[in-house]
Computed example of a mutant assay.
Amino acid sequence: MSDSSPIEWTEATWNPTTGCDRISKGCDNCYALTLSKRLKAMGAAKYQTDGDPRTSGPGFGVAIHPDALELPYRWRRPRVVFVNSMSDLFHAKVPIGFVRDVFTVMRETPQHTYQVLTKRSARLRRMAERLDWPSNVWMGVSVEDESQLARVDDLREVGAAVRFISAEPLLGPLPSLELEAIHWVITGGESGPGARPCDPHWVRGIRDACAAGGVAFFHKQWGGRHPKAGGRELDGQVHNEMPAVLSGV
């Protein structure tokens, strides 16, 4: 866990699982895969499981960490927590029993707000009724282009207090995006070597759809070789909107 995070829309990170596998275009330049390789070389205990080289890599094999479940109970200050910045809680290799354990921790620490993000929306939808959804858990899906909009349909079936979309890295326009039952949308360009460009017209379309639907909109970055290389302004404005449940609206 990190008590601070460079991710603009959260305050801290918590990784009860680590590792993943690439499943769509948005995963091609996965920052967590690259970082895991480095952490493995440094001897970090949580990153010694290797994944399939076709979809994962050194240190990025899926691993669960039961000892990490105790961490949120020790945090004195309430915080907004991104769950599994280095993994996907709904990966098929994460047992449902452990997913439930994570949800128990989140339910028993209501002073914190937890943000869970997945690309595996079909498993999320299938499991949703078997999970207890406390009001401090926000559930999101990653959508990089039109080909992944089915993830949003799956998300709508989940009884989370806040449902959100992370359109990052945004790799194409989302003209068919429907925002019914969605509370928050994050957009962002890709960063790192070989970063694919994000067209401002794509972001404007999402911004305008959010404005029309009364949905909170947050533009995280334009990306580039470094996350902050392109800044954050869209048409001269920084968009930092958060869901009403957190903003107090």
Rank of each mutant, 00 (worst) to 15 (best):
N15S: 03
N15R: 08
P16F: 02
P16V: 05
T18N: 10
T18H: 08
T18W: 02
G19E: 07
I23D: 00
I23N: 01
K25Y: 02
G26M: 08
C27Q: 07
D28Y: 06
D28F: 09
T34L: 15
T34Y: 10
L35D: 12
L35W: 14
S36K: 04
K37S: 15
R38K: 15
R38H: 12
L39P: 02
K40G: 01
K40D: 00
M42I: 00
G43V: 10
G43T: 06
G43R: 05
A44P: 00
A44T: 05
K46I: 00
T49C: 03
T49I: 13
D52T: 07
R54D: 14
S56V: 04
S56C: 09
G57P: 04
P58I: 06
P58D: 06
F60L: 03
V62K: 11
I64G: 04
I64W: 06
H65N: 09
P66I: 10
P66D: 10
P66V: 10
A68G: 00
L71Q: 01
P72D: 05
R77G: 00
R77Y: 02
P78Q: 01
P78N: 08
R79T: 15
V80G: 00
V80M: 03
V81H: 06
S85P: 09
M86E: 09
F90E: 03
F90K: 06
H91L: 09
H91K: 08
A92K: 14
V94I: 13
V94M: 06
I96V: 15
I96Y: 00
G97K: 11
G97L: 08
V99G: 02
V102A: 08
V102Y: 03
T104N: 13
T104G: 10
R107Q: 14
E108I: 02
T109P: 07
P110Y: 12
P110I: 12
Q111V: 06
H112E: 05
Y114P: 02
Q115V: 13
Q115N: 02
V116D: 09
L117M: 10
T118S: 13
T118L: 06
K119E: 04
R123E: 12
L124F: 07
M127T: 12
E129A: 13
D132L: 13
D132Y: 12
W133S: 11
W133A: 12
P134E: 11
S135K: 14
S135E: 15
